[in-house]
Write a protein that binds this DNA or RNA. Structure first.
Lengths: 219, 219
DNA sequence: TATTATCTTGACAATCCCTTGATGATTAAA
DNA sequence: TTTAATCATCAAGGGATTGTCAAGATAATA
């Protein structure tokens, strides 16, 4: 569960965002005064900060800078629409993303997820028989490096990250850099090649199971 | 197969959405009058409701509240773009997501998937002797995974979700991805196979009872 | 540019499983 | 008890899906 620090002076908006984020499994702590938010940052850690630029007391820019000085927590800035100057400033200040008001709550979720995904990308892990170093695009099995192509690697990672879940061909297409109008059979072909490279047998799979009429599943 | 209840008064729009969702494997039941939709909610269960705020008869807000009162089914509200007031209201009313018209059909699919993912996340439950993880399509009995086919799983889930109720063959056909003109005998066959797989005996059933002349009932 | 690697898709066989008629068993009602 | 309707199950048919080959299209690289 990711922890979110929300700094927003419009109390009504604050409540709405907080409730919405809670529904998506985020733990949200809200402040309308940046001073209080900065204080809590000394004591507790958060996965992400959402900062509204329209703030009393301190200028939003200073708040952002102050947070960056204190911590390494990623920041998403929101402010009134069309304020392009702010947008540029936001990134200069070290903000990780920018959101123009008014925004769809859904949009906020997507941005948060994107930022967290980017930031938390860490180094090699071992999953099952596989050694996976995602940033370096290296997958090994029994110390033997598998020579995946770009798309094969993407599909493989998507499957293994969602192991246990059944993923439809459409999901696979939409979650990788495959063109959205790629035929389903293309996915089958990639799966076939992946299976071959990891030494899996389609008839008696150890890793990638076909779910008839639905999709594929990493066991 | 997820069941969608669509409440939309623009008949043309209704047809378009219905057709689009069908292509993505959703079973859609549409109403232009919310009154009828509310009635059906007493009798049948749905995975998600899509509610258009521009409705006759009852005010859309009241419909939303009424659905939330009756059921726990997640709701996606749609309404004319830019109606920010509605947007906030939507969340206050307990809607799970909000979609501004006009929207891309693809967008609707994404929202539905997102809401369903959130709502059904980690929703593995134990019912009777069964461990049921619906999103991952896993059913276990005594730690042994039952290898249901697509339709068998749908029927099994439909029965167990409505356990205690007698369900006619027609209801079973219409609530699953079985073609509407499927013969009743086909349902019998599926039931027979399900019984076999869960170790049930038709003559002395522990789980699925035949109700002579009417249908089947999960005890 | 030429060459190579990768992606995409049609083709076809193998496989899966849905459907349905047939048959005997079971049930309800006369 | 007899009769007609319904149910359980077998087994065959057939439609849909999947695995993989191979060829062509596209992209990456020398």
């Amino acid at each position: 569960m990711s922890r979110v620090l929300l700094i927003e002076d419009d109390i009504e908006m604050q409540k709405l965002i907080q409730e919405y984020l809670s529904n998506y499994g985020y733990k949200v702590l809200s402040f309308d005064k940046p001073k209080s938010a900065l204080e809590i940052l000394d004591k507790e850690s958060f996965d992400i900060v959402i900062l509204d630029l329209m703030l009393p007391q301190m200028d939003g820019f200073d708040v952002c800078k102050e947070i960056k000085r204190k911590t390494e927590t990623p920041i998403i800035i929101s402010s009134a629409r069309g304020d392009i100057g702010n947008k540029i400033m936001g990134f200069e200040l070290g903000a990780d993303d920018y959101l123009a008001k008014p925004y769809e709550p859904r949009e906020l979720i997507l941005r948060i997820e994107a930022v967290l995904r980017r930031v938390t990308k860490n180094s090699a892990v071992n999953i099952l028989d596989f050694y996976i170093d995602e940033p370096n695009r290296v997958v090994k099995i029994d110390d033997y490096e598998i020579d995946f192509t770009k798309i094969e690697l993407e599909i493989f990672l998507y499957l293994i990250k969602n192991r246990g879940k059944i993923l439809s061909r459409e999901q696979i297409i939409n979650s990788t850099s495959l063109s959205p109008d790629t035929k389903n059979r293309t996915v089958d072909m990639h799966i076939s090649n992946i299976r071959y490279k990891i030494g899996d047998d389609s008839k008696n799979p150890k890793y990638i199971k076909s779910v008839w009429g639905i999709g594929y599943k990493f066991i």
